[in-house]
Design a protein around this nucleic acid. Structure first.
Length: 334
DNA sequence: TTAATTTGACCTTT
DNA sequence: AAAGGTCAAATTAA
């Protein structure tokens, strides 16, 4: 596999997190029906070890660099002369990537529904990839000035896997936003062929989306890898929720091991809720996030700061460990 | 007829 | 210069 845009550290990190994920899945199997205590303890031990390693990687390298980034870049670093500069605008937009798996058999080219309505505006063959990259922007770009965009790249190694890179927050109104939850889907794993292009909006803004597996990835800025730790927990509902006007990855900062993984974190309290669902069949996910300096500013000055009492700021979320996530040669897995 | 997609040209970034 | 990203006219779908 060609580890496009990935350095050694990322690879190791992926390995560790993936291993943790696999172990957790194994543990899940052993829990029901319960295995011997020894087996469970051993697996838990290994899981913790994996995460420990991943954490130390994150804390030693990328993360520390990120935490040093200058504040309020989003507001103050732009010269008036730069305001028209698209590239600079681009830099102040938060960017994150999630991996979306189309579970079973699956129809290949169905645009994965993430609760928003997108309009394709381009497609490009990317060097070193077998599949073209699709470029989408929010349907309400013009009507509401929503600047959110996303790129969808099918994985070479795993055709059922899509890497979806989001850029910019949605500023469009809720009518265009569909929440996704898989809380009720854990038991059932529907076929993927049934991805509608637009899902009907449910009263609470909740929509079921079973196949997505969430992974937050980040982009490097100025060749600095900046990674946010985020972790997943087994046996929580397959829901990752974003509340507020920010994107969820920020919520993971400083909450490496937050213990808040109650099964029902769906709180459609605000009209800006945004749910990310995680595959119920591939329980789990993990995330890491890279961020530009200005992204960090957003993080620092964002909801987390404004809602200090909340364990994770404005964000309540639950993530599951994914075990089927594949990322090339993960030969360290056993 | 309107809206979405396709696709080659054009622009930006590296 | 090459690759990635966006635009927009032509085409297709609703």
């Amino acid at each position: 596999m060609e580890m496009v845009g990935m350095d050694w550290e990322q690879g190791s990190l992926l390995n560790e997190l993936t291993q943790g994920k696999d172990l957790a899945k194994e543990l899940q199997i052993h829990l029901n029906p319960p295995a011997s205590t020894e087996t469970r303890l051993f697996l838990v031990e290994k899981i913790l070890c994996s995460y420990e390693k991943a954490l130390s990687m994150l804390n030693s390298g990328a993360l520390s660099g990120m935490l040093e980034a200058q504040p309020s870049a989003a507001n103050s670093t732009l010269d008036s002369s730069d305001l028209k500069d698209i590239s600079k605008k681009r830099k102040i937009m938060s960017t994150w990537t999630k991996r979306v798996r189309v579970c079973s058999g699956s129809s290949p080219d169905v645009p994965l529904d993430d609760g928003y309505s997108w309009r394709k505006y381009g497609q490009k063959v990317i060097l070193g990839t077998n599949h073209p990259r699709g470029y989408y922007r929010c349907t309400h770009r013009h009507s509401q000035g929503c600047v959110a965009t996303k790129q969808v790249q099918r994985s070479d190694e795993d055709p059922t896997l899509f890497e979806v890179t989001y850029r910019g927050r949605h500023t469009c109104m809720r009518s265009s936003r569909l929440a996704a939850t898989a809380a009720a889907a854990v038991a059932t794993a529907p076929a993927v062929e049934e991805y509608p292009k637009e899902k009907p909006e449910l009263p609470e803004g909740v929509v079921l989306n079973f196949e997505t597996e969430l992974q937050v990835k980040a982009e490097s800025l100025d060749s600095k890898e900046e990674i946010f730790p985020s972790f997943a927990f087994p046996y929580a509902s397959a829901v990752l929720e974003e509340v507020g006007n920010d994107i969820f990855p920020e919520s993971m900062v400083d909450n490496n091991l937050m213990g808040s993984f109650s099964p029902a974190f769906i709180s459609p309290a605000t009209s800006e809720s945004n749910y990310f669902s995680v595959s119920p069949c591939d329980l789990g996910s993990f995330g890491r996030r890279q961020s530009s300096e200005s992204d960090l500013a957003e993080i620092i000055s964002g909801p987390l700061a404004s809602v200090p009492n909340s364990p994770i700021g404005d964000f309540d979320f639950t993530v599951l460990l994914d075990t089927s996530f594949s990322f090339g040669n993960l030969d360290c897995l056993s």
